[in-house]
Design a protein around this nucleic acid. Structure first.
Length: 261
DNA sequence: GTTGAGCGTT
């Protein structure tokens, strides 16, 4: 059935990647394949999913063999309602290596050694980037998680930066979207603000961390001696929890998750 | 049970 993405990227030399956005979180590659294959030769369909939950991220990549067919699919499937959601189909802007591509066409796959890699001095700033990359690995990880978790919330930050979302031109009616998004954001923003105000005293908040996800929340242990033990641990972990990284530590109660990453 | 102005994997 869906062998897409399982065996890695197939032969992509002259393929055109399409980015499918706004798809439902339950839409799978198998659902998209027949739909897109109707308009042309689809060589690959890939839907990125979250590493932790394994759920769809809400977008997919459809790789066409020919540009004209891809273009046709864009025109035909863009704005189409799939699974009750209006999907958006457009040419991929970035390649698998985060490289810029044109019209969804991949210029050069990484695997291709291109014969003489010695002659070519690719990535002169790779060294510099590598260092920065490594150093920012932690931040990057956090950013990714944050982006997935908060998304809309930090969007306001973007607004402060302005000019960032300025290039955002959506073909879809912005009014309709804005109305919907605005209401949602407004509500969330308002609530966040209130909370922000309350959290003016981080110390107070730290003293009252969220309940432990311990399944043994029986009142007996509280009444028993373990209470002291528990309190001790809590106190010890309090300063750690204050750290932004501490939060990440408790992001998942599954120990294997941490080991995996 | 959930989200959503977003660009990807052996």
């Amino acid at each position: 059935m869906s062998h897409f993405g399982r065996s890695g990227p197939p032969d992509i030399r002259d393929t055109f990647s399409l980015l499918v956005l706004n798809i439902t979180f339950r839409t799978s590659a198998d659902d998209l394949f027949p739909l897109f294959d109707k308009y042309g030769k689809v060589v690959d369909v890939f839907i990125p999913r979250d590493r932790r939950t394994g759920d769809s991220r809400g977008f997919a990549f459809v790789r066409y063999k020919y540009q004209d067919e891809a273009q046709k699919a864009v025109e035909k499937l863009d704005g189409r309602v799939v699974d009750g959601r209006e999907i958006m189909v457009q040419f991929a802007k970035y390649g698998p290596n985060a490289e810029r591509i044109d019209k969804g066409r991949i210029e050069e796959p990484v695997y291709k050694s291109k014969g003489r890699s010695r002659s070519r001095s690719p990535r002169p700033r790779y060294d510099d980037r590598d260092q920065d990359y490594r150093r920012s690995s932690e931040t990057r990880s956090r950013g990714r998680s944050e982006r997935e978790s908060y998304r809309g919330r930090h969007r306001e930050s973007s607004y402060r930066s302005r000019s960032r979302s300025r290039s955002r031109s959506r073909s879809a009616s912005p009014g309709y979207r804005r109305e919907r998004g605005r209401g949602k954001y407004d509500d969330g923003d308002r609530r966040r603000r209130s909370r922000s105000y309350e959290s003016a005293s981080p110390v107070r908040r730290s003293l009252t961390p969220r309940r432990s996800p311990s399944p043994n929340k029986s009142p007996l242990s509280r009444d028993g001696s373990p209470d002291v033990h528990h309190a001790k641990i809590e106190r010890s972990a309090t300063p750690k929890s204050v750290s932004p990284r501490g939060r990440r530590d408790s992001r998942s109660p599954s120990p294997r998750d941490g080991a995996d990453e």
